[in-house]
Design a protein around this nucleic acid. Sequence first.
DNA 1: ATTACTGCAAATACTTTGCATACCG
DNA 2: CGGTATGCAAAGTATTTGCAGTAAT
Lengths: 149, 149
Amino acid sequence: MSDKEKMRQYVNLESLKRELERHGISPTFQRLKILEYLRKSKSHPTVEMIYEALSKDIPTISKATIYNTLHIFARKGIVAELSICEEGARFDANTEPHAHFRCVKCGNIYDVDFMFERIDEIHGHKVFEIIICLKGICRNCAHENRAED
Amino acid sequence: MSDKEKMRQYVNLESLKRELERHGISPTFQRLKILEYLRKSKSHPTVEMIYEALSKDIPTISKATIYNTLHIFARKGIVAELSICEEGARFDANTEPHAHFRCVKCGNIYDVDFMFERIDEIHGHKVFEIIICLKGICRNCAHENRAED
DNA sequence: ATTACTGCAAATACTTTGCATACCG
DNA sequence: CGGTATGCAAAGTATTTGCAGTAAT
C-alpha cells in the first residue's frame, strides 16, 4: 500500500497536513501520524511511547524515523522538547529553589533571579520541587557578533 | 596513600565532612572532593566535567563512583539534579509557554496552570524560552495509600 | 572479621548516523 | 530520473550494575 493510499484512510489528517506544509515540512504519512499522536496525547510522550503506539498502525516504522521527525518538528517549532540540557545530567549544589539560564550557544548554565510563586499543591498534586530553566543566548555569546551556525 | 592520609592534606574539607555526616553519608575522600567541586563550581557540572576535574587530584577515580555519589547526594538532598525526566526526552505538541507537573512516583507528566513572569531578558541574557516543571506526587498516586517505594 | 566503598568492566539504555531501498513529483 | 524520506543496522554516548579488591571500624 502506497503512502497516498494509506492517507485516504485518514481524512481527518487534512488539517495536520496543511499545518506541516505551512511549516515547510513535507507531510508524509509517518510524520502526520507522529504529529497526530503528539496532539492527541496528554502525557508528553517519550520516543518509546510514540513508537509503541504507532507500531500498531505502522508495523514497519522505526525509532530512527521518530527521532528524526521529532527533531525536524522541534527545529520548525511545531513541538517543544521538555528538557533542560540536551547532553547529560547536570547537578547543582544549591538545593534552594532558584532558576537557571541555559545558553543554547555555549551550553553554559547560570543561576538567575527569576521570581515565581512558591506553592505546595496544584490541581490536587503535591508539589515538592519547582524546576525553572530559561533558555536563550547568554550575554557573552550575544556580544560575539560572529556569523556562525 | 590511605584515604585517611589523603584527608590530612585537605583540612579545609572539615566542614564538608561534617555536612555529609549530618546527612548520614559517610565522608570518604572521593565524596568530599565531589561535593567540594560542586560547591566551588558555578557551572552546574555534568558527570564528565566532574570526572575531568577530579582526575587530576585522584587519577584512579571512576565515573561509576561519581554517578553513585551524585545519586546518593541527590537522594539525601545535598544536591539537585537539573532535569525534568530521568529517562528519555519528552516531547510536547503544545509550544505555548506553559508549565508541567511530573509525578515522581508514576512518571506521568501533566500540564498545569502555573503563573510566571514572561520576560525577554535577564541579567543581560536574551531569553527565548521558559521551561517550568513542578515535581511531586500526583493526585492519583497520592490517593493510592500503598506502602511502596 | 565485618561492613561499606571504590573502580573496573560488562551490560543496558538512549540517540545518532550511514546507507540501501522505496516513494513522490 | 532526481531528490527526499524511510528503516535497518551499526556506531556512539550516557548510565547502571556486578563483582573483586581495598579501606575503615
